[in-house]
Design a protein around this nucleic acid. Structure first.
Lengths: 189, 189
DNA sequence: AATAAAATTGGACACTTGTATATAACATCT
DNA sequence: AGATGTTATATACAAGTGTCCAATTTTATT
């Protein structure tokens, strides 16, 4: 990301960011990520190439920003209950809601992009970071004979594996059923 | 992969495949995957670009073939014991050995490539496939209230997470300690 | 409304990518 | 040794990438 998101974002900048993000999602619903050219993104957004490169290193960079925009819906209500055991379940629920709300888009995307392609990798990778960050803050004080990092990785891997199995490889499962699976897989910890 | 690996590979083809594979590993020890150009690979291998494209779609394709060559060391002795409980441990051991034997190379590679970059993603992705294929053949007959696919994913994720934690983020851990961690994480299944 | 800062724009540039094609070199088999 | 099929090579090409710059327009602030 060339543009600094921490500064106060001007109106024009916001417009530009939104336009490119929107264009990316639109194009992803129509063709595979590999096939998308920076020129396409620019034409659809009505911005010249130079503007694109003012904000992003490349299309991968934009894609990452797209996940950021999407996942921002998650950490709005950051501070719910604190029943320790339930943290993974809670996070699962949030991810479940996020993917449910955007199911249409994701289904379209999956129709043009392989499960093991660049795009899904990029999404997984972003979600992994978010999930780990979230879990880490709750597992800091947990006593265990396992390194915390391992524990956090394991929990986030499991949650996201389940989420991706449900939504990206289209195995319709209710939230409650998901809870059961999750408890079965993580039951001992 | 443009070249068909199933046909009998001629001596010349083998020479070419090996040269490019070797060059890739050599360059990965010196610079990040992103920076490696097809031209570099060709110069180092003393082959013209056209030859490269006779065999591979692009550098990602070659990289994938490199993992294939590397991981072939694993499935040589495919058929050891059959104590069901021990399958994940056994596979962990094989992966542990593989990474141990190639520790020098991997350390060099990690010095120039991010843990969440394209390269490691590509490696993880390849290993995931191998691991899942391996585990699936043993879990077919296992009775469980969980979908087998979920179970296999969970096991392979956990094994590989641990392997990557040990070798790619440099947390020196003995094989026996690894077993303990693995049992703790998967203990309930 | 004036001003300074920030964003947009068009065009030029060097470089990399992947394809295509025609010719030469090579290995393998009878 | 000669015929056959595969691989190597040189070269050319269209398209995309990412950078740079100087001129212009838009924006936030006073």
């Amino acid at each position: 990301m060339k543009y600094d998101l921490n500064q106060k974002i001007t109106r024009g900048a916001q417009r530009t960011l939104s336009a490119f993000t929107q264009s990316m999602f639109t194009l992803l619903a129509k063709e595979s990520f590999e096939k998308i050219k920076v020129n396409e993104l620019c034409e659809l957004s009505n911005f010249p190439r130079a503007t694109f490169y003012n904000y992003f290193q490349d299309k991968y960079d934009l894609l990452n920003y797209c996940w950021h925009v999407l996942a921002d819906q998650i950490d709005v209500a950051e501070l719910t209950s604190l029943n320790h055991e339930e943290i993974p379940i809670q996070f699962f629920d949030r991810a479940y809601d996020l993917l449910s709300e955007n199911k249409v888009i994701f289904d379209q995307i999956m129709a043009h992009n392989d499960v093991d392609g660049t795009l899904i990798n990029s999404f997984s990778s972003y979600m992994k970071t978010v999930t780990r960050d979230y879990l880490t803050q709750y597992f800091k004080q947990t006593a265990s004979n396992l390194p915390i990092e391992l524990l956090v990785n394991h929990f986030s891997n499991t949650i996201l594996m389940l989420i991706e199995w449900i939504f990206l490889t289209n195995h319709p499962v209710t939230k409650e059923q998901g809870h059961q699976y999750l408890r079965a897989l993580l039951g001992n910890l």
